[in-house]
Design a binder for these strands. Structure first.
Lengths: 210, 210
DNA sequence: TAACCACCTGACCGGCTGGTTAATAATAAA
DNA sequence: TTTATTATTAACCAGCCGGTCAGGTGGTTA
């Protein structure tokens, strides 16, 4: 008991501090990029002394890795899933909805991920090379089966996945541009469902599913 | 004559050096971000002494602004145009083709633009607020007319523009991810036309134009 | 020849960077 | 209480940052 208790109590302080730091770091990395975000700026945002930051994370790269790990977790969850037995229409609908909801809920995660990829994905090459590639191949095969059985129009499954990824993530990554063009200060709850409806409508029809 | 000659000759050196510097800077800014790209790293890539860089551009921000200006010019050219008298099918086809070609031809421009927007578009707020917003409104009105006259299905024109923007730019910005997933080293010429064909196919059908 | 001027660059500078240390405070365990 | 562990932070450091400057070079004009 004492051992478990100790771990829990000490772990609490660690955990809380780490969350505080990572939240601040995430924002700084999005706003300033990896190099532009300084340990001092992260400390200021977290309202902690700089040395305290480096007590919990050995160095700046360490902080970034932790942020990135959380980001990939979001991406995985948000990637939705495409199940074979649902048929193409429901599968694509669910997939789009999951990705759009994730974009509106965790725009910062999407932005950090996007910046990583744009800059050459040096911190997560293996992730795409192994996990993502396999995921795409698997799901593409599923789409191909639906195409072969005449359940949907003949479109390249891999590019279809790219299309859905790009269209959904756009609302997170290009938030600023979209809001400016729509002359709005923030997104509202209605927007999420409206975007889902729009994307499902046009993409499903594009796949010959409406 | 002598005056014009002098201006031309001296201008030549200036122009060549500036191009050399801006090309190197563009690459550095993409790879490292604004803060991560140092004047020294730009100098190294341009194979010039650092002081020479700062002879042609007063400071680092100046270089970035020059790069950004070039980027916006690319964006403007690549934005294609949507003409009223062509009808929706041809208009959208041309629009998609122009944007895809631009993405494959100038991925760095697209990437810099994307990073600017993701980080809050602090250097080009007015651009989106005035120029882009007006462009979108104008083109949206056009789409609406086609919808009203029954020439295309009722889809939100503004979101349609966002969809086309995101889907086309994706091939520039997420180049790394796409190549990794497709298990390829580089894009080839065929890819451009294939992507255009795919996007036109699915989006035109999505708009009820096929 | 002499004066001029665009071009070039090594050497330098203050300030900020990521990171260390050592001393102290708080907390938990005995 | 005593002891051990964990948490905190001011002070410090070497190195790199953007940026300046003084002193060149070589070609053109008068």
């Amino acid at each position: 008991m004492s051992s478990a208790n100790q771990v829990k109590k000490t772990g609490n302080i660690r955990a809380k501090s780490k969350v505080k730091i990572l939240t601040a770091a995430r924002t700084e990395f999005v706003l300033q990029g990896y190099r532009g975000a300084t340990v001092q700026s992260i400390a200021d945002r977290a309202e902690l002394p700089k040395a305290n930051i480096l007590y919990y994370f050995k160095n700046k790269e360490n902080i970034y890795h932790a942020v990135l790990e959380h980001t990939l977790q979001m991406w995985d969850e948000g990637i939705g899933d495409i199940e074979a037995n649902e048929g193409p229409k429901v599968a694509i609908e669910k997939f789009i909805a999951a990705k759009v909801r994730m974009s509106f809920k965790h725009p910062e995660a999407s932005k950090i991920y996007a910046m990583e990829i744009i800059q050459g994905a040096q911190h997560l090459k293996d992730y795409a090379r192994t996990y993502q590639r396999q995921w795409v191949r698997e799901k593409a095969k599923l789409f191909q089966q639906w195409i072969d059985s005449g359940e949907m129009v003949n479109v390249d499954p891999v590019h279809l996945i790219f299309l859905i990824w790009s269209a959904t993530q756009h609302y997170a990554d290009f938030e600023t541009q979209i809001l400016t063009i729509m002359n709005r200060a923030d997104f509202e709850e209605d927007d999420v469902e409206q975007v889902i409806a729009f994307l499902c409508d046009i993409i499903l029809r594009g796949c010959g599913l409406i």
